[in-house]
Design a protein around this nucleic acid. Structure first.
Lengths: 240, 240
DNA sequence: TCGGTGCAATCATCATACAATAAGTTGAAG
DNA sequence: CTTCAACTTATTGTATGATGATTGCACCGA
């Protein structure tokens, strides 16, 4: 029997407890459980409620503060910052919104798609211009994985890898973090479309054209083919 | 005599010490003082060096971890994550890079400008489509401040407000956080151009056209005028 | 009514102790 | 000699209690 992976994946602060508190509080805040602008319960109460020590709680509060959700001051307490101040591009916040915003989910998905349609064609153009052979190989292998996928989970995973690889190939470090937007958009698309197993490869030819344009270093073609891919996706969604 | 602002501006975790440790460690890491992939000194040593308690140090480390800079594990230590994992859109990280990357500063400025030229024309188009009267007024008052500015500091401040107001008017919550990119770009532009006091208003007419296009809800005009503004800025820079 | 002044609630920081984790070491079995 | 499991130990994770700093708020005097 192979033991489960012992080290947590990189990027997630190792320990469980910490992560749990961040998740719990972050979910509550994004979910609107605490009124925006008002205060959280004080440390003592929250510690009792969550059954953790002040140390653990405070470290979580500090992290949420760095994400723009909280602001704590002596005597005042820890208050929820206005939505305007939240770092909406943060991976965690996006994930919490994806799961909580089921009311305004369509609005969030609209904004996610809007950003994708701005970023990705341009990133794709840059990828065609700047790609190295190694980065082209990454895009290609993601495409291969999409073609070879036999269920929708594998497809989505490979799809995400494809788009991230394109961003990476643009060789612009500031574009790479936007892969969180793409990731969230795909997650929401999944939750909307009733993930029927048939026909999930409908977008494969469009991806193929993107790959070929990047390979040929055809900048305008790369831009156009990515734009087409995204608008087709949008059309397929709105037609339901 | 008016007293200095007593409460730290919102968004900055109140107390100084935290902020100091975060700044100090973040600067060191971004500045390359610790080899990427390798470990920081352990907590005891760092506490002694920075003259702070473990609590304070650990809270800072947790925040830097949330920014993607660090990853700490028992027995292993706290290690610098690969540059690829850094959240380059984070306001702090961008600021640290602006001050430290003097070697590769031009490369950073190039990437910042690239992102601006992708985002801003499209955001401007959306602003023309979606703006409310209030948001239009914000753009306009920033423009007025630019016109009225009498020194380069006031000009830059108003310029930043102008571009942030345009992003806000796009009514896309995911675009607003990108104002950090614009802010950093302007800061770098300042540090490059030798801030001579004359002629700093050269870009005013371009901004006026952007304002008018947004007012008239002329989407294509808004896109084009913002694109022209940015390309003119780039031209003015490279010509030195 | 107004302005200063002290109180007290809350977070900020510190110090210490113990638990959990996992790399490295050791030693025994094959 | 190799292999693998158990032990050791360095490092971070969590808990707890005490003290300092900040500041809204109530109280008090003019």
């Amino acid at each position: 029997m192979i033991s489960l992976p012992k080290r947590s994946p990189p990027g997630q602060s190792s320990s469980a407890l910490h992560r749990q508190i961040i998740q719990e509080l972050g979910s509550r805040i994004v979910g609107g459980r605490y009124p925006a602008g008002e205060s959280l319960p004080n440390e003592e109460v929250l510690c009792a409620e969550l059954q953790v020590s002040r140390t653990a709680l405070r470290e979580a509060v500090k992290v949420l503060g760095a994400k723009g959700l909280l602001d704590s001051r002596p005597r005042i307490g820890t208050s929820i910052r206005p939505v305007k101040a939240w770092n909406m591009l943060d991976a965690d916040i996006l994930a919490w919104r994806c799961r909580h915003d089921q009311d305004q989910g369509e609005e969030l998905l609209r904004q996610l798609s809007e950003v994708r349609e701005i970023i990705e064609p341009n990133a794709c153009l840059l990828a065609a211009r700047n790609r190295t052979p190694a980065e082209l190989a990454d895009v290609e292998s993601a495409y291969m994985a999409m073609a070879a996928s036999e269920n929708i989970q594998d497809w989505v995973k490979a799809d995400l890898n494809f788009h991230v690889a394109v961003l990476a190939a643009s060789r612009n470090q500031l574009l790479i973090p936007l892969s969180t937007v793409i990731s969230s958009a795909l997650e929401m698309l999944l939750s909307f479309s009733a993930r029927r197993a048939s026909n999930f490869k409908k977008a494969l030819p469009d991806h193929g054209k993107v790959l070929e344009a990047i390979r040929a270093q055809d900048e305008r073609g790369a831009f156009a083919s990515m734009q087409k891919l995204l608008s087709d996706t949008r059309a397929r969604l709105t037609q339901r």
